[in-house]
């Protein structure tokens, strides 16, 4: 009996992964854009500590991040107590908890590229906009944001791909529950531990292919953009 390449388990894990990555990327773009703008413009003394805080998930081991999220979101943690007081129950081991985790561990991947774009732009375009009597908010939407387009694109692709690829945090916060928090990476882990190497290979190779294509498309778009600007 040959196992089917894509079992219903695999399909459910893939659907959940795509749902998680799509939602977290959209939310991250909305959250990261103003944050990146503030970090690129402010002269506040909070700029460097906050910038460091945003970068923290990039260097922390996923087990550390996952453990703290687990404790924070759990019934004794303050986020867990808050969500329980709001009648939502603890978020750990639920899709919402996974989504919150994804927002944290992919945050630097969203903020960094947008911030770099804003910084590369310099003060000049906004000064010109101001002399043309554009109000700051107006100038942000009509001048700064369009100029930061390559950064927004990079942020979207990187945070999507990174969420798809994350394993340690997802395993810790999600609990690897089929149909609820079992994504492709934790599904592969289960296959490897059960020595079901064929199924593991199918999913793992799919992951490699997906990540390669995502990065390739990103590089192409970036080089096209650069040619346009040149």
């Amino acid at each position: 009996m040959r196992p089917a390449a894509f079992s219903s388990e695999a399909v459910s894990a893939i659907a959940l992964t795509l749902q998680l990555a799509t939602l977290s990327t959209l939310i991250l773009l909305v959250l990261a854009t103003p944050l990146a703008w503030w970090l690129s413009q402010t002269r506040s003394r909070w700029r460097t500590p906050l910038g460091a805080l945003v970068l923290l998930p990039l260097v922390l081991p996923p087990t550390v991040l996952g453990f703290y999220l687990l404790v924070l979101l759990g019934p004794q943690g303050w986020v867990g107590q808050l969500t329980q007081a709001l009648g939502l129950g603890p978020l750990s081991f639920s899709f919402s908890g996974l989504l919150l985790g994804a927002l944290v561990f992919s945050l630097p991947f969203a903020v960094q590229p947008i911030q770099s774009s804003f910084e590369a732009m310099g003060a000049r375009p906004l000064e010109v906009a101001a002399t043309l009597r554009a109000r700051p908010l107006d100038a942000f939407f009509t001048v700064a944001l369009p100029l930061a387009r390559p950064g927004l694109l990079t942020a979207a692709v990187l945070s999507f791909a990174h969420t798809v690829g994350e394993f340690g945090v997802v395993l810790m916060v999600g609990g690897n529950i089929p149909g609820q928090t079992r994504v492709v990476s934790t599904q592969i882990y289960g296959h490897v531990e059960a020595m079901e190497y064929t199924q593991a290979h199918v999913l793992a190779a799919g992951m490699v292919l997906f990540s390669f294509i995502a990065l390739w498309v990103l590089m192409r778009l970036q080089s096209k953009q650069r040619r346009k600007q040149a």
């Binding site: 453990f67 687990l70 404790v71 979101l73 759990g74 019934p75 004794q76 943690g77 867990g80 603890p90 750990s92 081991f93 395993l171 810790m172 609990g175 690897n176 529950i177 089929p178 079992r182 882990y189 289960g190 531990e193 059960a194």
Partner: peptide, 16 residues
Amino acid sequence: SFGATGQFYAQIRNGA
């Protein structure tokens, strides 16, 4: 759900 026993212990303590 598959995982390490120690990890499950931490998760059960936190409401898994």
